[in-house]
Simulated assay, not measured.
Amino acid sequence: MRIDIITCVPQLLASPFDHSIVKRAKDKGLASINVIDLRDYTTYAHGQLDDYAYGGGAGMVLMPEPIANCIMSLQSERKYDAIMYMTPDGEQFSQSIANRYSMVENIMILCGHYKGVDERIRQKFITHEISIGDYVLSGGELAAAVVADALVRLIPNVLSDETSALTDSFQDGLLAPPVYTRPEVYEGMSVPQVLLSGNHKAIEQWRNDQAIERTKTRRPDLYQKLLGS
């Protein structure tokens, strides 16, 4: 998988992809994440990327030409399966969306900044608009890092244990059950006996019951969706 992230603040993405699972994927040659500096594609003086919005109002807007120059330059080099734009009014990112896009080869992600991008860029180039939650960040960079991390960890052979991603929260519409490790007793709190029993069928049933109960208690919206499916 190749992920190209277009940003006007590339420094914000200097660290997230150089550690842990994403770094492992890059080292194995299973994923390539490239941070593209939008200022390299502007023809305006002093690297200008933004301007005032027509009609007035607070905040600046990223101008269309530098973004178009960047996207078209990247498109001349390869075909993209998706061109995403990180925006609060996009589709809510979810595990099912991550599963879907983890199967593709080339993804471009445009990070908004300030008051966003000129609407004509969204109309002309963007194929998928994604939000990571009902809140506003300073820009789309951290959101893009979230999406990239969620996709890369699903690529086959990235995780040491292939079943790990399949048992994550949300994969089956449920939150993950509680987990325990050594010591068996910590400050008077013991590991549930069923997990020490060696009875794999009973353990699996306990985990399923716990996942359902945790989802019902903590995310009743997910639980109701599960009941309706």
Rank of each mutant, 00 (worst) to 15 (best):
I3P: 03
I6M: 11
V9F: 15
P10W: 02
Q11K: 09
D18Q: 13
V22E: 01
A25T: 00
A25D: 03
K26G: 08
D27T: 08
K28L: 05
I33H: 02
V35M: 04
L38C: 10
L38N: 02
A45K: 15
G55M: 11
G57N: 05
A58D: 03
I67H: 10
I71F: 01
Y80P: 06
A82C: 13
A82S: 15
A82D: 04
I83P: 14
M84D: 01
Y85H: 04
N99L: 02
N99T: 08
C111Q: 01
G112V: 03
G112S: 11
Y114H: 07
Y114E: 00
Q123D: 11
T127H: 07
H128E: 15
E129N: 02
S138N: 13
G140T: 02
L142Y: 12
A150R: 02
A150F: 03
V152I: 06
L159S: 09
S160E: 15
T163A: 06
S169P: 09
S169C: 01
L175R: 14
A176I: 00
P177N: 14
P178T: 05
Y180D: 01
R182I: 07
P183Y: 03
E184S: 12
M189S: 09
Q193Y: 09
H200P: 06
I203M: 12
W206P: 10
N208F: 08
N208I: 10
A211P: 01
K216T: 08
K216F: 12
P220A: 08
D221A: 09
Y223G: 08
Q224T: 14
L226V: 08
L227M: 15
